[in-house]
Design a protein around this nucleic acid. Structure first.
Lengths: 210, 210
DNA sequence: TAGATTGTTAATCGATTAACAATC
DNA sequence: TAGATTGTTAATCGATTAACAATC
């Protein structure tokens, strides 16, 4: 049981924690005040200090926060201090849209396997082995993969997610539009491009009005 | 000036509006009560009715909401009633991770151009023409493209976004980790895989504790 | 008219901000 | 000690919920 009995952490604080962490990753070692963090993240200094108190005390009054210490504390809180093994299921190449594997690794996510319906002959992509889809359960179990990015077709999503869940995967980033029905213990996060475009469309409309 | 002078719509309502819209897209024509919508979206009926009042009156007391009417009203509110022309900049194939183009089209987004550093000879992908990167500004202007999905490398992100903004693009979905600096009038939405994985990691940790 | 469900008001709840005493 | 910045409390603000009168 790490950290605190954490009373009630507002849901809205979690994305902010991730942003604090990202900001710290780009800062030089040394000391940063809540004001410094406020400047780079755009949140208020009070908000930042408040968010941190949900998990403990990480700063020194009169000084600020040690960048490496706070960085480590945040990755502990987020659960990324021990690297997650991640599988990309569907179309591995697609991952390259989001940046390079090194960046994910630095944030605590090691992509250790890809799965495709029809993998190329050579069976590897940028160091990551690519397996045919019917090896999914076996490889996930063998390699102790605990997280997956789901990028299959909408029709195959539920079935594939069930295989992942049964094979021990604890967390799924769902890039498909399907609403997945899985046991409570599996954390699922939808990431729907159409929905993001709609939010963007809405906001663009309001901006134009001014 | 469509809709209402909209007093203050809470930011948190916008993603819900998009979800209501998605739910309606999957419902049969006819009538739906706020209770019906609550069941399929997971939000409370009171919340749904409240959210809608920010924009007007769309239901009939004693009856409920007309599915097609509410669907249309929501797409008006979201600004997707008139199709957006969308460019995918970076790696067009990557878009296929998120589902098919038809689905985006149904939601009001028509992908009309892709841009890549080294486009294939044939220069088209699933009906969508693929242009070399140096045609970006010209094509965007010529085709009146108003929205873009940015999936270039982190290093090229800012520069590419500036070209888009100068060429008249009003909204950018930023798939790169770069923090874009653009004129106020351009709506930007970040979509960072690493950050989403971190949120997932956090939540998975809490689930496991129970 | 009786029944149902909206639109809206008032009450509750929770999250953010501001201020400051505690601390290095 | 004087100066700075945290951790925390209290005050403010905003969003959600519950309840119900208005309406079809």
């Amino acid at each position: 049981m790490p950290d605190k009995p954490d009373l009630k952490v507002p849901d809205s604080a979690v994305p902010r924690l991730a942003q604090y962490h990202h900001a710290l990753m780009e800062m030089a070692e040394g000391v940063a005040s809540s004001d410094d963090l406020a400047r780079v993240t755009g949140f208020s200094a009070a908000q930042i200090r408040k968010d941190l108190t949900y998990f403990g005390q990480f700063g020194r009054p009169g000084f600020g926060y040690s960048v490496p210490d706070l960085k480590q504390a945040l990755s502990r809180i987020l659960g990324t201090d021990k690297a997650w093994s991640v599988a990309v299921v569907g179309t591995g190449k697609a991952l390259s849209v989001f940046g390079d594997l090194d960046r994910f690794r630095r944030h605590g996510f090691r992509v250790t396997a890809c799965f495709e319906k029809e993998p190329d002959k050579n069976g590897a992509w940028d160091d990551v082995p690519v397996y045919p889809m019917d090896k999914l359960g076996d490889v996930v179990r063998r390699e102790n993969i605990r997280m997956a990015v789901l990028a299959v077709s909408e029709g195959a999503a539920q079935r594939t997610a069930e295989i992942l869940a049964e094979s021990g995967v604890q967390a799924i980033l769902n890039l498909t539009p399907a609403r997945l029905q899985l046991p409570e213990r599996v954390a699922v996060r939808p990431m729907d491009l159409a929905m993001e475009l709609e939010k963007l469309s809405y906001r663009s409309g309001r901006l134009g009005d001014r």
